[in-house]
C-alpha cells in the first residue's frame, strides 16, 4: 500500500508532462509551422508525432518547442522546428522515397523523415553526436533509419541513388559526390546561415547532367525599401 501512492503520483506526473508536451507540439505545428505556410499533411503529422524534447539536451527540454534553434553541443544546433518542416516539405517527400541526410546532429530531422518516407540514411561526422543520435533513434524505434559516422562529403554510395538529399549542416560548397548520388529529377536541400540566425535555404534540382539551384527564403519579408511618402 505504501508504494501505491508514489506510483500513482509518478504515473500522474509522467502522464501530465507527456500531455503537456503533446499540447506544446500541437501548438508548435499550428502557430509556428502551419501559420507560416507549410501545408504538406504528412510533414505536419510527422512534426506532431516526433517528440522533439527527446532530441535536445536535458537542460533545454523546457525550450524544446520554442520557435528557435537550440544548442546540442559540439558547436551544433537542432534547427528551428519551422525550418525542419520547411526543409522536409521542400524535397516533396513521398512514401516510396529513399532519402539521404548529411549531418545527423541529434537525429531529429531523420526522425521527422522516418514516418514520411520509406528509407532514411543519415551520416554524422562528429562521432560523439553520431553515436548518441544513432542510439536515440534506435531506442525510439525509428526502424527505417540507418545511421553511420563518417565524412558526409562522399555520401553513402552503397544505398544510392537517392530521391532526395537533406544536408542539415551549412556548407560552403556542394560536394560533387552528393550530386552524383541524386536521382535524375531528385532534390537536394541545403541550409545557408550561421547558427541562431534566420537561415536561407538552397534547393538543388538535378536535371540530367545539369542542375539548377533556387535560393529559398523560408521567412518572406516585405521589400527592404521604405515606401515613398
Amino acid at each position: 500500500m505504501n508504494g501505491v501512492i508514489p506510483c500513482l503520483l509518478f504515473l500522474f506526473f509522467v502522464s501530465f508532462f507527456q500531455e503537456d508536451y503533446k499540447e506544446k507540439r500541437e501548438g508548435m505545428v499550428k502557430l509556428q509551422i502551419e501559420k507560416r505556410g507549410v501545408k504538406d499533411a504528412a510533414v505536419l503529422n510527422a512534426m506532431r508525432q516526433v517528440k522533439r524534447h527527446l532530441f535536445v539536451p536535458s537542460s533545454s527540454i523546457p525550450d524544446a518547442y520554442n520557435d528557435g534553434p537550440l544548442p546540442i553541443g559540439y558547436g551544433q544546433t537542432i534547427s528551428q522546428p519551422y525550418i525542419v518542416a520547411y526543409m522536409t516539405e521542400a524535397i516533396k517527400p513521398k512514401p516510396e522515397y529513399k532519402v539521404l541526410e548529411i549531418g545527423t546532429g541529434s537525429g531529429y530531422q531523420a526522425a521527422v523523415l522516418s514516418p514520411i518516407v520509406k528509407e532514411v540514411y543519415t551520416i554524422e561526422i562528429v562521432p560523439q553526436l553520431g553515436t548518441a543520435a544513432a542510439n536515440r533513434l534506435k531506442k525510439l524505434g525509428y526502424k527505417n533509419v540507418q545511421a553511420k559516422i563518417g565524412d558526409g562529403y562522399y555520401g553513402w554510395k552503397e544505398h544510392g541513388p537517392y530521391d532526395a538529399i537533406v544536408v542539415t549542416a551549412a556548407t560552403e560548397y556542394v560536394p560533387p559526390p552528393l550530386l552524383e548520388q541524386l536521382k535524375d529529377g531528385g532534390r537536394m536541400i541545403i541550409p545557408i546561415g550561421s547558427p541562431f540566425m534566420t537561415q536561407t535555404l538552397m534547393l538543388v534540382e538535378k536535371k540530367g547532367k545539369k542542375a539548377t539551384t533556387k535560393s529559398l527564403l523560408p521567412v518572406m519579408f516585405v521589400p527592404f525599401t521604405r515606401e515613398k511618402k
Binding site: I125, D151, Y153, E172, Y173, V174, P176, L179, V204, A211, T213
Partner: peptide, 17 residues
C-alpha cells in the same frame, strides 16, 4: 584529411577541393 575549401563551388566541379 577532410579539410576542404571551395567557396561557392560550381555544381559542375568534380574536384575534391
Amino acid at each position: 584529411p577532410v579539410l576542404r575549401y571551395a567557396p561557392g563551388l560550381s555544381l559542375t566541379a568534380q574536384n575534391t577541393a
